[in-house]
Design a protein around this nucleic acid. Structure first.
Lengths: 242, 242
DNA sequence: CGCCTCCTTGAGTACGATCAAAATGGGTGG
DNA sequence: CCACCCATTTTGATCGTACTCAAGGAGGCG
């Protein structure tokens, strides 16, 4: 209903793949080549559901362009974002028949969709696919564990600093350059396990300390001092922030 | 240094496999059969390091008997336990050359150790191993995500209740039966992202509400009301706990 | 018996949540 | 282009949960 079919085959994926691979290594060239022609290309505009917690799972995806978030909703309405996806990332593998997460586009996105069956079909002939996918899953697991450490053992300020730092590094942003984070405070907060207000307060704190600048244009920041950002991220108190 | 070599081959693993598979499905029969004779069996007594964050990684493991924890230590001394392992669980896959986690035995444990190479060696001949391992990694990822939601969005009481509930379910403990959790308050707290004192307080709270009994014998509890435990775990406030 | 580690309980504090309101900005239609 | 509306963000005030610091108690082991 929300999604619009763009085409079949890897034409679009191919056009966009250069950009995708530059920004992120996961699920890169090899997997793309291996899965190539089995893709269905889909496009979503901002804030659309790609799949929902509880849906029956039959496909996995490769983010071609844009940004996607994966979240869990608890019965009492509390939400936790579990992962943020950048171009090149794979998502939509499940441990059970049902989706355990909701996937939602943050801006205009293009994704390639693959039926689960192609993994076994292609994999049986060439173990390379299995190796690639296992490598991807291991990296995924490792980064989710890192996320868990943040949620369990970092202060609000450290989390916000860490998030900006992580994103700046991944986008290769240097001091003085603009970081575009197409994400609302709500999502910001749900990713960090904080309230919207706390995120806002911590951002002003970092702003007043001169580590970042918050632009009027929503979702845009300037990274002023990425080294200090890293110091704060590692231990806010030791760095002199209360 | 800490470890003592017990033998080579899958003799020990075989002897213990029945128990292992009953308590947990992960890394069960199929993987065991596939990897069989490439194992080195090791034994550790309580509170020994199996591998340490920063070590070079060359093997993965299968927990045969006992209990193991995987943790991360931050520079400021804060620790987060990322996973608790029960018999049958696989661990020690890494995303990079170095261990990103420390593995530590909680009681007397037996593990089977496999060099990374066997995966490719066996996998290239029979894709079944790759499929099994991918399934294992997917389940692992899913449960780590669940853990992240807990750390980000549950209260102290909910976390403690959830932990007891999870463990009771996995060990198939019913009301009135004894749950053995061979784990100190320190580890309890580091798994839940809380302080030792808070864990202790929440346990007395659950005790006073009659949901559990805390035995003198360290690490032993009686589960009195597992249904209420689940209610508290899902939403402590809605269930009437402040 | 005494030491040591682990656990519990108490008192005070602080960090972040909640509630409330004001400010900012984007989008729409006149 | 401006006015208005609505969504989002920021700021303020208060509250509550969980942390910290401190002391006492309990169990394990030599």
């Amino acid at each position: 209903m929300f999604q619009s079919r763009v085409g079949t085959g890897y034409d679009l994926a191919d056009q966009l793949s250069h950009k995708a691979q530059k920004t992120h290594a996961d699920g890169g060239t090899t997997i793309l080549a291996l899965l190539g022609s089995h893709a269905t290309n889909l496009a979503y505009d901002r804030h659309k559901i790609i799949f929902r917690q509880g849906d029956r799972a039959s496909h996995f995806y490769r983010l071609v362009n844009g940004m996607v978030l994966l979240s869990k909703l608890r019965l009492n309405g509390r939400r936790q974002i579990v992962r943020l996806l950048l171009p090149g990332d794979l998502f939509g593998f499940e441990a059970s028949e049902q989706r355990s997460l909701t996937a939602e586009s943050l801006n205009n996105t293009a994704v390639a969709q693959y039926p689960y069956e192609v993994v076994d079909q292609i994999g049986d002939g060439s173990p390379a696919l299995y190796r690639e996918l296992m490598g991807f899953l291991r990296r995924q697991l490792s980064s989710t564990q890192e996320h868990a450490v943040m949620l369990g053992r970092q202060t609000a300020l450290e989390r916000v600093a860490a998030f900006l730092h992580w994103f700046a590094k991944r986008k290769n942003i240097n001091n003085g350059e603009i970081l575009t984070l197409p994400i609302r405070r709500r999502d910001f907060a749900d990713y960090l396990g904080l309230s919207v207000e706390t995120v806002s307060r911590m951002l002003t704190k970092l702003k007043e300390a001169g580590l970042i600048a918050v632009l009027k244009d929503h979702g845009k920041f300037i990274i002023c001092d990425i080294v200090s950002l890293e110091d704060v991220m590692l231990d806010a108190k030791a760095y002199g922030f209360s």
